[in-house]
Design a protein around this nucleic acid. Structure first.
Lengths: 158, 158
DNA sequence: AATGAAAGTGTTTATCC
DNA sequence: GGATAAACACTTTCATT
């Protein structure tokens, strides 16, 4: 049994601290980050730039509250296209702005998608086009025991 | 039929431009944002601060690449706790760092969760504790036609 | 609410280790 | 790969509208 990480980039403790801090606040100043890890600002700037270069950090973005934007509800929909409709269904899903993620998976259901809507009544309209071309199974989200979050650092070493 | 947005905060065009720009790059300078919307830096700073205050912007964070971190695979697991095991199962899921989201939903399956793993072999270990207390149904993600993204602005006006 | 100008911070570049 | 210091850029405060 190999003890090496299967893939993925080797991050040292400093990189991990920087990423952890930037997850909490992506607008942290390089100066503050530098103080946190006990290095100079230029060095930290270079580290962060490198993390972007190698693709670990894909970008700096917002955490938005769907509720505050007027989306009171989310649903998870399993979607099984009718024979011959797979490609069309996939394209259709991709045209829905309220789709917050859609994965093509192994097994009975072909797609699993998450949608946000202002109220329960909006769901039907959203899925309209889909329901002619696929069997769907909709589950309304009641609570989120684990809110959407990022993968842990240190893959395989947890 | 009421034409008002059901809930959610009223955002003007400037707010929407600022949010859109910050989604693309949360580290944009207030000066650049100001130029973008044709206002002064202090005004834009105040706008962004206000968007945080009212809870539309929950924070500034990273977009990390799970693959680059060594997670070659993700799976979506539907979890139906055995009688009397609901609370314990929920707690158990919350202790798994590789769980990137978990929702409690209506319908047959009680929880739907997303996990990331370095390789297919790691899944079994992750779900070990769960499988004694719940029926699980695992779907391996092959591709993501809609990658994880944020809700659209302008709820109900799309 | 928004602005311009000044004062205060933070970033970047260049040079060196 | 990391540090320091000077030059440059950005942010914040404040007085004003």
């Amino acid at each position: 049994m190999k003890s090496l990480q299967n893939k993925g980039v080797a991050l040292d403790g400093v990189d991990e601290k920087l990423i952890a801090a930037l997850i909490k606040n992506a607008r942290s100043s390089m100066r503050d980050l530098a103080a946190l890890v006990g290095m100079s600002a230029p060095s930290v700037t270079e580290r962060v730039r490198r993390l972007e270069d190698i693709g670990v950090i894909r970008g700096f973005t917002l955490d938005l509250d769907p509720q505050a934007l007027g989306y009171a509800l989310q649903a998870i929909v399993r979607i099984k296209p009718l024979p011959g409709q797979l490609k069309k269904v996939e394209t259709l899903i991709q045209t829905i702005p309220e789709c917050m993620e859609c994965d093509k998976v192994t097994g009975e259901d072909c797609f699993i998608a998450r949608f946000c809507v202002p109220e329960i009544g909006s769901l039907d309209g959203l899925l309209e086009g889909l329901e002619a071309r696929a069997e769907t199974n909709t589950a309304i989200i009641k609570t989120s025991p684990v809110p959407r979050r990022l993968p842990p650092l240190q893959a395989g070493r947890s």
